[in-house]
């Protein structure tokens, strides 16, 4: 579903992604973790070309993202992206936020989209808040609306860039619960996160990155119990003693 081949990316002179090779299959849940600056956010932002890549091939759902001529609209319609800072549109209600793309990009009729929107908001537990504005919602609620916004496009892939890092601790679980359900339903997901409990429960594989390179890829049990590389061991020791 997602294939990275020999990907290299620079920010000016800074080499942020070094020779990345990774395949993600349909229905897989992949968690990406690593220290700050390891390039993990950059990695998933390349998938829907929020960040362009300079070298290598990136194929998503059989479409070539690395090719500048590719029209990204079709690809982006199939990918839901959830940001660390939620990025909800403050001048629209929750319902407005989740329906604008289905109406404008998938050309759905407005009442169909609203019906779908309310269903999906219900699914993330916010059916009653459909007509509220983001400013009236808590952080956890806003992030769930953001997830609903992604889901309303009926995407094949959901990408999450540190979805709980900006949340107060008591709200992290409500968001993780939604993500867990999504994973169980078979959604292809790539999640950048520090939430190791989530990774252990739900991930098919864990990708560990450091300094722009993929250091280790392994199923969660193997990764957390028997990390093979020194850097992975170091990282885990720092994270797991919380």
């Amino acid at each position: 579903m997602i294939r990275f081949s020999k990907i290299n990316k620079w920010f000016g002179d800074l080499h942020v992604l070094k020779d990345i090779n990774l395949n993600v299959e349909a229905g897989e849940v992949v968690v990406v973790c690593g220290p700050s600056g390891s390039g993990k956010s950059t990695l998933i932002r390349c998938i829907n070309r929020l960040e362009p890549i300079q070298q290598g091939e990136l194929v998503v759902d059989n479409m070539k993202v690395h090719d500048k001529k590719t029209n990204m609209t079709r690809i982006r319609a199939e990918i839901g992206f959830v940001f660390q800072q939620f990025n909800l549109y403050p001048h629209m209600t929750a319902l407005g936020n989740v329906t604008i793309a289905p109406v404008k990009v998938r050309k759905m009729k407005k009442n169909e989209a609203e019906k779908l929107g309310r269903e999906i908001l219900e699914r993330v537990g916010l059916g009653a808040k459909a007509d509220n504005y983001p400013a009236q919602l808590s952080g956890g609620q806003q992030q769930r609306v953001a997830i609903a916004r992604g889901l309303c496009m009926r995407p094949k892939i959901m990408l999450f860039d540190e979805p709980t890092s900006a949340l107060d601790p008591e709200m992290i679980n409500e968001v993780l619960d939604v993500m867990r359900d999504l994973a169980k339903e078979g959604m292809t997901m790539m999640v950048v996160t520090h939430e190791m409990g989530f990774a252990r429960e739900v991930a098919n594989r864990v990708v560990f990155m450091d300094e722009g390179q993929i250091i280790e890829v392994a199923p969660p049990n193997d990764f957390f119990k028997n990390p093979r590389t020194e850097r992975a061991k170091l990282f885990l020791s720092k994270i797991l003693t919380h």
């Binding site: 990204m72 800072q85 990025n87 604008i100 990009v105 916004r149």
Partner: peptide
Amino acid sequence: AYGQIEAAMSSGLSYLQRMRY
């Protein structure tokens, strides 16, 4: 905030659509 434009881009909205809505 640029993040909103990224969110709109990520849902597939075109430049004109992002501007207008």
